[in-house]
Design a protein around this nucleic acid. Structure first.
Lengths: 211, 211
DNA sequence: CCGGCACTACCTGCATTCAGGTATTTTTCC
DNA sequence: GGAAAAATACCTGAATGCAGGTAGTGCCGG
């Protein structure tokens, strides 16, 4: 028995996936959620084997949600499902702990095959997605390989900086010393090899670490 | 008995709609199509009461298809179904003979309600679509009304600031005094009513004055 | 021909950021 | 339990940015 959880704000899609999975009686959809919040609440109590995650959700970025789920539950396999076929999203998803990527125009067989693949420890990308990735991989991989790894705190501060808050304002908001905030900022400047916050935000945006 | 035809290249969506309609036994899905060509071929032989039409199709523009179907069959009601809520699409759809517009995040009840409404000769627009359209128009208007007017030089400096250049660097590049650059920057801060270059860039981006 | 606008330039004082550190505590992971 | 990573905090000096001015030049349109 394989338990499956569906996160999508479209009842249509949820119903469609359920219908597709009905044919295999060892696949059981134990729950669904329309928002990231709902999903986290459910998974807290009742873990599942595979999560089908729509990247575009109303209340939070699906990529962020993927990361959150991954930190909480290391065993669960996460398959991203979107209608867009964007190489950027795919690579990001994988970097944030995703195990697979499907397009919403998938057939029933592909969905079931993907579930088996990720449970076997493989990464499954839809054929179309795969092509896109390979196509753009050469140009992207240099950048992605060099992409600095930011800590939780650093990401938090980066986001606030991008909102236009100053060092002292951030320190106040997070109840930290300005020195601490400056240290984090300084470390990020080093990691990205830039000389100012403006450039930091700019390249972070290019690395798609920011909206 | 109401006959329904679904045009969508996503089996997921087709299945989902079918499932939603199963609850009402007087609603019968007599066929589906993944492409515009398929759809036209089917409808030629076997007209239906209501068509649920995905606007984004692989082989042709859904809006054009709507127009084609309308010319061939005046009695059929056409409801557009998309995931995007774009004002342009809605108005175009109606101009080309569409009778309704639904978002893919609809609930079962809304779908059934929409079918009844269009059969009664009304135009049905999903509440969310309506709201978002109005919302977009409003935000666009307010944005355009309050949008500061920047001079040529200011725009030039704004662009360089957004590239991450510092005041002195810009002064050097444009062969100006740093004082001059700072004056322009200062004037822009006033015009946008912000207190830092970071915020200046942020709101300028929101006003779509920057890439 | 003159008033308004854009562009240029300058000054002062204060705030913030940047570039170098060092150092302690807490968390995470094996 | 101990090492590594992360988070916290501090210091100094120099550079840059911000807020508040003032002021000259040139251009355009009523």
């Amino acid at each position: 028995m394989i338990t499956i959880f569906i996160i999508d704000d479209h009842p249509l899609v949820t119903d469609g996936i359920k219908t597709m999975l009905q044919s295999e009686n060892y696949l059981q959809v134990t729950g669904t959620a329309k928002t990231g919040k709902e999903a986290l609440a459910f998974l807290e109590k009742q873990p599942v084997d595979v999560i089908l995650l729509d990247i575009s959700l109303p209340d939070m970025d699906g990529l962020v949600l993927c990361e959150l789920i991954r930190t909480k539950n290391k065993a669960t396999k996460i398959i991203g499902v979107t209608s867009a076929n964007d190489a950027g999203i795919i690579t990001q998803l994988l970097h944030r702990g995703g195990n697979g990527y499907l397009l919403k125009n998938m057939e029933r067989d592909e969905l079931i095959h993907a579930i088996h693949r990720v449970l076997d420890g493989h990464v499954y990308l839809s054929r179309e997605a795969n092509e896109k990735v390979l196509q753009q991989y050469q140009s992207l991989n240099t950048a992605l390989n060099q992409m600095p790894v930011l800590t939780r705190r650093e990401k938090e501060i980066l986001a606030l900086l991008s909102e236009g808050l100053t060092g002292p304002q951030i320190a106040d908001k997070l109840h930290l010393s300005t020195y601490t905030v400056e240290t984090h900022r300084k470390n990020m400047l080093q990691k990205f090899n830039v000389t100012s916050t403006m450039l930091l935000i700019k390249v972070a945006r290019e690395y798609k670490l920011l909206n």
